[in-house]
Design a protein around this nucleic acid. Structure first.
Length: 415
RNA sequence: GCUUGGGUAGGGUAGCUUGGUUAUCCUAGGAGACUGUGGAUCUCUUGACUCGGGUUCAAAUCUCGGCCCAGGCCCCA
């Protein structure tokens, strides 16, 4: 027996139907916000991801050399491919460009709850403008998606990496060491951050002011304490979100989201029920296009961890009932099999989800099978009814039966 | 990369501590009993000790290693 590679999953029909259902909700929500779907390759040149995220991603990259000696990697995320595509093929489209995507990504990590080596992301990028309206669109869309999926227990936190970066730079931290400091701040490791900052000759007053900033956490009223441009910007953003009906957000200026290319607003959503891997969504505003050889263009984007959000919904007890098929056609005896094939084909041609017994089963077992595939109706084809041009239509849940003219059969399924 | 626990038919399990004949039960799949009516019963049938090494007369059971799963760290673009 050949087993699945570590960290991958098979999705059986019921599960897949459920996943498609919820994917559909995400797609529909994105469309209502005016976003359009794109797809990029599952593998790219490794360089693309290294440029975006730095060489340290290599150890978690599924990278290999192909038969033409190209350095290839399975995509670990989809923002870089989306922006590559924008630079290569869409840079002259009218702005803003609103695109979304859904697909699997790969990271060579240790699997644990809500973390797989092959996982699914839904993401969106709004390319074209570094203003609060763009950020509001993105956050509002993320919030709508979470709501549309029916998740209740979640938190959305909004921060601003620009203000934090500026404060750190003003305090005298050299540019190349910013990431180091941010990493400690992200984890709220102040005991480690303080000696680190002191080592860089940052004054105690500046250190305290940095810590105070990252500790600015709470509902939107804490923004009144934030001075300067970033404060104004966030107030404007929150006001727009309020106008859009998105009010269940928190401010947390300690949201850091590691990477260098984030320039302003950053946000995260988490589902506390998930434990260690509780982040279900993350994003922010950034510039990336210039890294891939394009002009510098401001974007805001986010990605949803599809597997995690489904897991969180499951933990809240949300269930999905598979739809099953409309009709299962079965024969009373072997003489009518040809006629039954005609009938099932007619139903299919009319858009009815119909199946037919191909195991040569007798009625009893065929009915049992029909119920096992959640058929709404059984279409029983027998010589008696055929004499009158009819078949028997059996409602599988109630057991009610009636004779229906073959010509009228398809219309019985429309509604 | 570190760490804890686990792995017995498709799914769920008993057996493992204390090694011993054909590996338990439920469910599921296939056929039949029932030749025109399902989710019932009965009969037959299919199907498993994660893999490899070691200890032993003998390993599902003890032991070591690999693989995989679940959880916790690290990381998380």
């Amino acid at each position: 027996m050949i087993q699945r590679p570590r960290g991958t999953r098979d999705f059986l029909p019921d599960e897949m139907e459920k996943r498609r259902h919820y994917e559909g909700i995400l797609r529909d929500t994105a469309k209502t916000f005016g976003f359009r779907e794109i797809a990029t390759p599952i593998f790219e040149e490794s360089e693309l991801f290294i440029l975006r995220s730095g060489p340290n991603v290599l150890k978690e990259l599924y990278a290999f050399m192909d038969k033409g000696d190209r350095e290839i990697a399975l995509r670990p995320e989809m923002t870089a491919p989306a922006i590559r595509m924008f630079v290569n093929e869409m840079s002259n489209e009218p702005k803003p460009i609103k695109i979304f995507y859904f697909g699997q990504c790969f990271r060579y990590e240790r699997p644990q709850s809500g973390r797989y080596r092959e996982f699914f992301q839904f993401g969106a990028e709004l390319i074209g403008n570094p203003n609060a309206e763009s950020d509001a669109e993105i956050i509002a869309m993320a919030a709508s998606m979470i709501k549309a999926l029916g998740l209740h227990d979640y938190k959305i936190r909004i921060g601003h990496i620009g203000v934090l970066r500026k404060r750190i730079a003003d305090a005298g931290v050299p540019k190349e060491r910013t990431a180091e400091v941010l990493q400690k701040l992200d984890k709220k490791l102040y005991d480690e951050a303080r000696p680190l900052l002191k080592e860089m000759d940052v004054s105690d007053a500046d250190i305290d002011s940095i810590f105070t900033l990252t500790e600015t956490v709470g509902d939107v009223s804490v923004l009144s304490q934030v001075e300067g441009e970033a404060g104004d910007y966030l107030r404007q953003l929150v006001d727009l979100l309020d106008a859009m009906g998105v009010r269940d957000v928190e401010i947390d200026l300690g949201v850091v989201r590691g990477l260098d290319y984030y320039t302003g607003m950053v946000f995260e959503a988490e589902a506390p029920s998930l434990g260690a891997e509780k982040q279900i969504c993350g994003g922010g505003s950034y510039t990336l296009s210039e890294l891939f050889g394009g002009e510098k263009v401001f974007s805001t984007g986010f990605a949803v961890g599809f597997d995690r959000i489904l897991l969180a919904m499951e933990k809240e007890g949300q269930t999905y009932t598979p739809k099953g098929i409309d009709a299962y056609v079965l024969c009373v005896n072997d003489d009518v099999r040809r006629k039954a094939s005609e009938i099932v084909s007619m139903l299919r041609a009319n858009g009815v989800c119909a199946d037919i017994d191909i195991m040569g089963r007798k009625m009893q077992k065929a009915l049992k099978y029909a119920s096992s595939v959640n058929a709404k109706y059984a279409v029983i084809v027998g010589p008696k009814e055929l004499e009158e041009g009819c078949v028997t239509l059996r409602d599988m849940s109630s057991g009610d039966q009636r004779n229906v003219k073959i010509g009228e059969l398809s219309s019985c399924f429309r509604c």
